[in-house]
């Protein structure tokens, strides 16, 4: 009985959606073209995804699986056209097998291509050991290239504003207060994370100031996260009310 009611709710909702779209197209609010059908498809998928707020249902499942499939297909196409085709297929494979090719094949690309194929051999029990060569190369190269740059960008460059003099001439009072706040924040938060000393007396008081700085930081992060999630919802509502229903201008 309950399954029947769910089925009727689903069919009724889809029927209502179809009726609204027929009305919108008949009244000229939606163009009878690929653009119009694209908007209908977008609105349908948006409503199907949000229908999960009521409960799990077949429309949501279809939209969810469609999303996963489209994302995967998009990734494959991007990988082919942005990486494999310009960096491997065009400079190596085409000149090797085409007599009309103007440029000589770049045989140096065989080495990284083999390393890439070795990585896929993780799926083979007999040959999975070859993938370690690729991982060793990737880890070694990654560490060698990244470590100096990461230390410079994330540590040394970030320390610089903390060491900025409070009064070196030319600053406004506000910027000096800002520098003092940064100094207080950095020191108090660092002291809060020193666990080898008991947080009592002066250390305890400074670490409490550190907690306040951390709480303000978490509050800012939470506010921005709320804003991020809400902007997605606002974007969808704007699409439904403006592009689909033509209620907003």
């Amino acid at each position: 009985m309950r399954k029947d009611s769910n089925f009727f709710i689903l069919v009724g909702t889809i029927g209502l959606f179809v009726c609204i779209n027929i009305f919108l197209m008949a009244s000229g609010k939606l163009p009878f073209s690929s653009d119009g059908f694209g908007i209908i498809l977008g609105a349908g998928l948006t409503l199907a995804i949000y229908s999960f707020l009521y409960k799990d249902n077949p429309a949501f499942k279809i939209a969810e699986n469609l999303y996963v499939g489209v994302s995967l297909g998009y990734t494959i196409i991007i990988t082919w056209f942005n990486f494999l085709k310009p960096d491997l297929y065009d400079p190596l494979i085409v000149p090797m097998f085409s007599k009309a090719a103007e440029k000589a094949p770049q045989y140096a690309l065989i080495f990284p291509s083999l390393l890439g194929i070795f990585m896929l051999l993780r799926f083979s029990r007999k040959l999975s050991w070859l993938s370690r060569w690729t991982f060793a190369f990737v880890v070694g190269l990654g560490a060698g290239v990244s470590i100096p740059r990461v230390i410079s960008a994330f540590i040394l460059e970030q320390i610089k504003p903390s060491l900025h003099p409070v009064f070196s001439g030319g600053e406004t009072i506000l910027s000096s207060i800002n520098t003092l706040l940064i100094m207080l924040g950095v020191i108090s938060v660092l002291i809060y994370f020193i666990f080898s000393v008991e947080h009592k007396g002066a250390i305890g008081k400074v670490s409490k100031i550190g907690i306040w700085f951390l709480m303000i930081s978490f509050g800012a992060s939470f506010g921005y996260t709320v804003m991020g999630r809400l902007s997605l919802l606002i974007g969808r509502i704007q699409f439904l009310l403006r592009d689909w229903l033509n209620i907003l201008q």
Partner: peptide, 26 residues
């Protein structure tokens, strides 16, 4: 960047590693 990433990016703005930042909808 998206608003979720914004707080992680503002330190780079202060250290002038970024010349400007558009953080989220704001």
């Amino acid at each position: 960047c998206t608003a979720v990433m914004g707080p992680d990016m503002y330190p780079f703005l202060q250290s002038k590693q970024l010349s400007g930042l558009l953080g989220g909808l704001k």
